[in-house]
Design a binder for these strands. Sequence first.
DNA 1: TATCTAATTAGGAGTATATCGAAATACAAT
DNA 2: ATTGTATTTCGATATACTCCTAATTAGATA
Lengths: 196, 196
Amino acid sequence: MQPEMDTLLQFFKTLANENRLKMLGILAERECGVEELATLLDLKAPTVSHHLGRLRELGVVTMRVEGNDHLFRMDVDGLRDLSRRVLSSLKLEQVGALADGVAYDTWERKVLDVFVEGDEIKALPAGYKKRLVVLRWLANHFEPGRRYSESELDALIERHHPDYCSLRRELIEEHMMARESGVYWRLPWQMPDLTT
Amino acid sequence: MQPEMDTLLQFFKTLANENRLKMLGILAERECGVEELATLLDLKAPTVSHHLGRLRELGVVTMRVEGNDHLFRMDVDGLRDLSRRVLSSLKLEQVGALADGVAYDTWERKVLDVFVEGDEIKALPAGYKKRLVVLRWLANHFEPGRRYSESELDALIERHHPDYCSLRRELIEEHMMARESGVYWRLPWQMPDLTT
DNA sequence: TATCTAATTAGGAGTATATCGAAATACAAT
DNA sequence: ATTGTATTTCGATATACTCCTAATTAGATA
């Protein structure tokens, strides 16, 4: 989990509460003590104190002491900086980073575990998504750049599964391989080799 | 409660969850089915389905149907629009609007209820904040623009509380009134009249 | 020192949310 | 039609959160 995830979660969790949002709105306009906020929001002091603690922890509210009163107000700089950081994490180029800790290959491994045994395709998945995984695994057995005749291709496919005819067609349909005047070749592919 | 509050709350609540954030990150990079997401996040399908429902409701994820699979991906436009709307609500000029439903006068009324009876100040609050409220109430008895001699001022203050000396000094200190060469006048003030 | 005021902390009750297993639904393929 | 696959809905449980009352702490005043 990248460090931004913690910040993001704290930000959203803290602001995901109506009373805390109202507090922030109030403290943007005037400096308040706990008792005053409690009156304005129709809450008890301990509740307000708790919410203020969270807002302060997040860094969007500051406190100063005046006699017995603890006076709170919005932290303009803190809120601005946080907003910027959060917004940039939600930008299109950045939002993918939220999945940084995710092991993308577990899904494909799982599918291959079920439908492939060694070099052999035990069964062709019915669902589209899973079928794609197996097709990619199959396509990975052909070298990019090399050219195959149809009979050569069929023979190679048949080593993995008897229905070379359907598989050849689907490899073409999914643009994992291409054909021109009876000659086949593999199209470039971004997927790493995950042979079981 | 202004309409923005609902949107804001829905936005923060929906994004205040680690698994939903990860989903958004994954769906920003690839189109996924429920089962695939469940594998990647180590959750069960019903849980993922529930989370996807909330993300879709918020408008940051879209779905298309391919055979039996429901394929989800991030809604680029939806996320961008929402982010903008939320961020602008957190801008300094806007954030005060979060407190639109708040009745700001309840606090001062409450203080005055306790410390003022009719025209008379029953007791001077010890705390700073409450003392300010009573001082403002007192200052409100003097017309802006009119000039008072010290003896005149003292007499008027004494009608509300015997300790005209302290009160006169504090009115000056808090810049509710001003003095020059023995003449006093009230400084402009933004507070409405809340005489009990 | 004793007392008063304001805030915080501790502990508990009620509510909402996350997650799961089981059952129901939608859709394809045989 | 029946079977199989992917998803969704339903119901239950466990966890997290909000809010309260009661007790404690910190600071100011008499």
